[in-house]
């Protein structure tokens, strides 16, 4: 194993061209997955531009090297209810949140991710540098495994829109991996639901936007909202987990979804 300590994105891209190059952000996923003795470890901690957080022109941009803790802290300063503050602030535990980077987490796409759902709900785009330089929507990145090699996640960006938010991670204890997560974003105008986004993670598809739920509530005012039988909108893609069977998790998700929707739309939050 050989280590490299680049200072610029250009140096990283050059190193990415080498055989067996492995990007090292916080390193937690690499240790979990096992280290390759022949790997060329490219440590990203010296690349300043990957740690930048910029909020201007109606867009929020988070560097790929920003840690969960730093992202939650900075976003929370201007919007304590931001969906990423809720999700990243609860993910893993404090010492790990100080190491896990956004870029590493998006690249690794672990089933228990607390990042992919909220980013999808926010309509985030990834800026890649390397083999496929450019901006890519989250959904496109997730369904294109070839984008995961030969590229560096330089940053993620999403519109700085003010949402009512609700985030749920289904765990047995607070430090558990979630069996699934639900990310809800809602905007209302004049008592009507102007826009609703609902994203589920943890199923065999990893990330799914629940368009049926969104359509049921969008454009509706308080009297027209129907919170019954939400389970019919949940996919059949739940899988058996240590937390419970697929059918159990689907039922639990329906209860969580109803709670979240009621809370966001001013109904009973019980």
């Amino acid at each position: 194993m050989e280590w490299f300590f680049p200072k610029t994105v250009d140096e990283v891209i050059e190193l990415l061209g080498k055989e067996d190059a492995v990007l090292h952000g916080g390193g937690t996923m690499l240790l979990r997955g096992g280290l390759r003795p022949s790997g060329k470890m490219v440590d990203l901690s010296g690349v300043e531009s990957l740690r930048q957080i910029v909020m201007e022109g109606g867009v929020t941009s988070l560097g790929g090297g920003v840690t969960y803790a730093e992202a939650a802290r900075r976003l929370g300063e201007s919007d304590p209810d931001h969906i990423l503050v809720q999700s990243l602030g609860k993910a893993a535990a404090t010492p790990l949140r100080n190491r896990i980077t956004l870029g590493g987490s998006v690249m690794a796409q672990p089933l228990w991710s607390d990042l992919l759902g909220p980013l999808t709900a926010l309509g985030a785009e990834l800026r890649l540098e390397g083999k496929n330089s450019g901006f890519f929507e989250m959904a496109e990145f997730l369904r294109s495994p070839e984008l995961r090699s030969g590229n560096l996640i330089h940053s993620l960006r999403f519109p700085s829109v003010s949402w009512r938010t609700w985030y749920h991670r289904e765990t047995r204890t607070s430090f558990d991996y979630p069996a699934f997560t639900l990310s809800l974003l809602c905007r209302q105008e004049g008592g009507r639901v102007k826009e609703l986004r609902v994203v589920l993670t943890g199923t065999s598809k990893k990330v799914e936007r629940l368009l049926g739920v969104e359509e049921r509530f969008q454009g509706r005012d308080a009297e027209e909202r129907n919170f019954r039988n939400l389970e019919e909108f949940l996919p059949e893609t739940f899988v058996d987990r240590p937390h419970g069977s697929a059918s159990y998790l689907r039922s639990v998700a329906a209860v969580a979804l109803e709670r979240g929707l009621r809370k966001l739309m001013g109904g009973d939050a019980a």
Binding site: W3, H24, G26, G27, T28, L30, L31, M41, D43, S45, P95, L96, N98, R99
Partner: peptide, 10 residues
């Protein structure tokens, strides 16, 4: 940080 999750080189 958890020092068990940090490679010394980094």
């Amino acid at each position: 940080v958890n020092s068990c999750q940090v490679l010394a080189a980094s």
